[in-house]
């Protein structure tokens, strides 16, 4: 199973979802498969879980999806007990765990390439709805089904390292443009102005 296979299955299912991705492979691939206005493509690792949680807390009626990597989650493991404690109303987290820092270009292993188990860490942190998926068939059945469940869900997808994100076009939209596109989408769909945008 590759990350790209999973993202291809998720992309057509987006309706009014808000999708936050961390850097890097999932950001590039998701922007290739999905041009949804509710996409927020963050430029760094270790921030998407927090931003997604904040969005979900601010907008508990919205479906928020976070697309993460093992390296990014490991960078901010303190997010896991905090997420469990905050218990957002509708937050689906997909962690594409290839066991390596693919961005290193030498496939340097992450801790999950060794003995660390993200599902076990999530459960130990108090996230009850956590599971690991190891095949595209299982993702099609269970991974997709968890997209539209309620509550906090944490889906670890054990994927093989793929270099697709180096072969496809990288997004040309910069962080500020993406932020405003996202915020304007929220203003349209929520029917109210986003506070900080303010008057010019």
């Amino acid at each position: 199973m590759t990350r790209g296979e999973c993202l291809k299955m998720l992309a057509p299912l987006m309706t009014d979802h808000l999708v936050v991705t961390s850097q890097s492979g999932q950001r590039i691939e998701w922007s290739h498969f999905s041009e949804h206005d509710g996409n927020l493509l963050l430029g760094q690792m270790g921030c998407a879980l927090g931003v997604g949680a904040g969005l979900s807390l601010a907008l508990p009626h919205r479906k928020v999806v976070v697309l993460e990597s093992d390296g990014s989650v490991l960078l901010s493991l303190f997010n896991l007990p905090t997420l469990a404690r905050l218990n957002p109303a509708d937050l689906a987290v997909y962690v594409f765990d290839n066991g390596v820092y693919s961005g290193s270009r030498i496939s340097e292993p992450t801790a999950t390439g060794g003995r660390a188990n993200l599902e076990a860490l999530a459960k130990a942190a108090g996230i009850r709805n956590a599971m690991t998926i190891r095949s595209a068939r299982a993702f099609k059945k269970d991974g997709v089904a968890w997209l539209n469940k309620k509550g906090l869900r944490f889906v670890v997808c054990k994927v093989e390292e793929s270099l697709l994100h180096r072969e496809i076009p990288r997004p040309t939209i910069d962080l500020a443009e993406n932020k405003y596109k996202f915020v304007r989408y929220l203003e349209r769909t929520e029917g109210k102005p986003i506070t900080f945008v303010g008057r010019g």
């Binding site: 936050v20 879980l49 904040g54 969005l55 404690r85 905050l86 929220l186 506070t195 900080f196």
Partner: peptide
């Protein structure tokens, strides 16, 4: 006030940022 207790100031910032983007004054 909507309160969000956190485990690290690093996520205090990211969570508040998400809330701001979602329309809160965080």
């Amino acid at each position: 006030f909507q309160l969000a207790p956190v485990s690290s100031e690093q996520e205090a910032v990211t969570i508040a940022a998400g809330a701001t983007l979602g329309g809160k004054q965080a």
